[in-house]
Structures are given as C-alpha cells and as structure tokens.
C-alpha cells in the first residue's frame, strides 16, 4: 500500500515536465514532416545531385544512433560556434532523425499512387509539379497516416533521450528527484506510467484518424 501511495505522490512533480515533452514532440514532428517530405521529393526527383544528397542524408542519419546525434548537436556544434539551447537542440535532433525515417514513408506512399492519377491530371491541364502537389501528395498522405502516427508515438517516447542534453523532460525530472529522495522504484515506476499515459491515448487517436481518412476513399 505504501508503495502505491508513494508512487502516486511522485506524479505531481513529474507532471511539470509534460509541457516540455509535448513541446519537443510537436516541434520535432513538424520539422520531421516538412524535412521528410522535402527529402522524399528529392529522392524521386529527376536531378541526380538532389537524389544523391537525399540518399546521403537518410543513410547518415539512419546509420547513427539518435542519442549520438543529440549529443553531437548539443556538445560538438558549440565548438564550431553554433550553440543551441537544450529544448531547440532536442527539437532539431529528434526532427532531423525522424525526417530520415518519414522520408522513406512518404517516398513509398507517393510511388504507391497509381500512374493513372497523374495521367488524368496531366490530361486536364495540370503541370507535372501541380499534379504532384494537388493530386498525388494529398492521396499519399492517406496511405502514410498510419506509419506517421506510429513514428509520432515512438518520438514521444524518444524525448526521454534529450535528458542527456539537459532538457528537463520526464526522465531528467525523475533523475533529479531520485538524487534527492532515493525512492528509485517509486520514481521510475511513476515515470514509466506517465509515458504510458501519453502514448496509449495517442495510439488510439492514430487509429481513429486512419479510419476516418480511409472511409473517404
């Protein structure tokens, strides 16, 4: 009984970190969506140079650990004169990392839209660029909604990694509490439950959004 009440007592202190987590996740997701789409477009473009740049970006980011990328941005960039505050650095690191993964989602979704859709648009007087933006990409979003949602949930949990670059998110807050009270079991149990409380509703929302998008076509 005492364990449960002690664990519950930790929550108020951890709740204070939730706005930071949401800020990190929302900011990084926005960055990842924009950068991911641009990377996907570069990968399917006619230009050899753009394609090469995109492939290089994706492979470098996927080939190195997110934790290393965060540390690199926060601790190494200042040595060449680029100092970034913890939260923006976290958003940048998470955003760039997830952009690489999302670009693959977008690329396959765009390629999955039938050629006939583009042909119809062209025959109606759309330019190839306009056909891509007005006809193909909107349809590819429906296909990619599920994977995007999954990556978003994963990203919410990966915000915990930013604790190493001094972002006072949930895990960092828990570490600080632990160093003060040494109630290790209660504190990290509460932290784990708090992550669950964030990710379970998100998973539900993703399912609902996907269902709604699919019901239209």
């Amino acid at each position: 009984m005492e364990f449960i009440t002690d664990t519950l007592a930790v929550f108020p202190a951890l709740f204070g970190a939730v706005p930071i987590v949401l800020q990190l996740a929302a900011g990084a997701m926005l960055l990842a969506l924009v950068l991911g789409l641009l990377t996907a477009l570069a990968r399917i473009s006619q230009s050899k140079v753009l394609r090469a740049v995109a492939v290089f970006f994706v492979e470098v980011i996927r080939g190195t650990p997110l934790l290393v990328q965060l540390v690199y941005i926060f601790f190494v960039l200042p040595s060449i004169g680029i100092a970034i505050d913890p939260v923006p650095a976290g958003i940048l690191g998470l955003g760039i990392n997830y952009a690489a993964y999302l670009s693959e989602v977008f690329r396959s979704a765009i390629l999955s839209v039938e050629a006939g859709q583009t042909e119809a648009a062209l025959s109606l007087g759309y330019t190839p660029t306009k056909a891509l933006w007005r006809v193909v990409i909107p349809q590819s979003f429906v296909v990619s909604l599920g994977p995007i949602g999954n990556y978003f949930i994963a990203m919410v949990k990966d915000t915990a990694l930013t604790s190493v670059i001094a972002v006072t998110e949930i895990l960092k807050t828990a570490n600080i509490l632990n160093s003060q009270t040494f109630q290790t079991t209660e504190i990290y149990t509460a932290a784990a439950i708090l992550y669950l409380m964030l990710s379970l509703p998100l998973a539900r929302i993703v399912v609902l959004m996907e269902r709604k998008a699919r019901s239209r076509g």
């Binding site: 039938e114 042909e119 119809a120 025959s123 429906v142 239209r216 076509g217």
Partner: peptide, 14 residues
Amino acid sequence: DVGMVFQHFNLFLN
C-alpha cells in the same frame, strides 16, 4: 484543349 477519358476512369480517389 484536349479532353481525355481513360479505360480505367482515373477519378481522383480522395
């Protein structure tokens, strides 16, 4: 200037 109708309709599905 040229309208086209396709065998497989090619309606915008969304």
